[in-house]
Amino acid sequence: MISRFSDRRFAGRVARHAILLLTAAFALLPFVWMVSLSLKPPQEIFQADFRLWPTAFHGGENYRIALTAAPMFSFLLNGVLVCAAIFALQLLVCIPCAYALAKLRFRGRDTLFSAVLVGLLLPPQALAIPHFVMLNVFGFLDTYAALILPWAISTFGIFLLRQFFRSIPDEIIHAARLDGLGEFEIIWRIMIPMTAPALAAFGIFSVVAHWNDLFWPLIAVRRAEISTPALGILLFRDDEAGQFLGPLMAGAVIIVAPLLLAFLIAQRRFIDGLAVTTMK
C-alpha cells in the first residue's frame, strides 16, 4: 500500500519535471539558439547538421562586428538614458499628484481622479499621431525629447502610487505636520521612504516597458545615434553588417542581455514588481 502510494508520488514528480522541462525548453530555446548562432562562423550556420557549440569558435569576431558596425553601446546608453529620464519625469509628476489625491482635501479632487482613471483607459498607441504632429511642430522629432516627453505623464503611475499612499495612515502625516514638516518635506521624508518598494515596482514596470518599446521609437526617431535598443537592433539588421547572421545574433544578445541580467540578479523584485503593479 505504502509503496504503491510512494510509487505514484514518484511518477507524479517525474511527470512534473518532464512537462516543465519541456515548457522551459520552449521558453529558453530562442535564447540558446541566439547565443549559439552568435558564436558560429557563417559556413557553420548553414551546415546541414546542427551543433549547439561551434566547432570553430567565431564569437569574438561576431561580437566585434556587432559592436563596430553599429553603435551598439550607444543604443544601450540611449536605452539607459531614455528610460532613466522617463522614469525620473514620471516620478516628478506622479508623486506630488498621487500624494494630493491620496491625502489632501481640495475641490476638484474626485474629478481629477476620475480623469486619471479615464486616462488609464487610453492605449498609448492611439496617441501616436497627435504626439507625432506636436513634436513635429516643435521641431523635436528625431531628438531625445521625442523619445521622452510623450511619456512624462503616467496615469498608471499616479493611480498606483495613490493606492500605496492611501495605505499610509493619516496619523503619520498628522504627526509629521505637528513635527514641523511641510507638505513637500512630508512627501520627501515620509511618503517616499515608506513606499520605496512600491516605487521600485513602478520603476521596474516603467523601465521594462520603455526599454522594450519599438512602436514609439520607430515613429519618433530615424537617426541611429539616438536610437533605443529595440529600434537599434532593427537598424542593425537592415544595415549591411546585419545581413550576416552571426553578428546579427551577437547584436541581439547585446540588446537583450542588460534587462535579462538585471532580472536574473533580482528575480523576486522583478516578478513581484510586475505582478503587483498589474494586479493593482
Binding site: E171, I172, H174, A175, R177, L178, I190, M194, A196
Partner: peptide, 27 residues
C-alpha cells in the same frame, strides 16, 4: 500645526517606520 506649540500622541503611535527611534525623536 507646528506654530501652535502643541504636541500630539496618537492611538496608533504614528511613529515613522523607516526611521530609527533616535531619528524619530530627532525629527
Amino acid at each position: 500645526p507646528k506654530e501652535r506649540d502643541v504636541a500630539m500622541v496618537f492611538q496608533s503611535y504614528a511613529l515613522y517606520p523607516h526611521l530609527s527611534v533616535f531619528d524619530n525623536l530627532a525629527l
